[in-house]
Amino acid sequence: MKNKAVFINGKRKYIFCGDEQGLKLLSNVLEKGKEEGLTYDRYLLSDLKMTLLQDFLKSQKMGTFVYLAIPFLVLQQFRKALEDIGYLEEDVQYIGYGERKIPVFCCRCHEINMSNQEQNRLFCNRCSLELEVSDHYSAMHNAFLGYVAKL
């Protein structure tokens, strides 16, 4: 997950995809693609709905590279959808913007709590245990582990 798109060479086709705000964030790489005369598609994801985009991405050929720029809050569900289609980590750059929430996995009851970026302590919504947010991350839960804050 990056904040800025970086140009990747040597792909047969590029897809620049995002909502309006997102496409602005991709303008530098899009310009670069134009300059070099590369094959590309620009895809405006106006309503952040996945179905149409999914069909479009599924019909692409191997060697396609995707830039996807959307709000952080929906990024994870798009990442999951792209992985299910078969896009590898190496095939996509995800650019997030806007508000971020940090999901925190409660070590005692497994509830996933949403915390603000600055908070490093919080109380679990389900079992009320005070949690200390760590940088131990699970991609499957898309959450960071919250350990017992004090004994």
Partner: peptide
């Protein structure tokens, strides 16, 4: 042939 394989291949 390699040109024709869909993403995920």
């Amino acid at each position: 042939f390699l040109e024709n394989h869909l993403v995920g291949t």
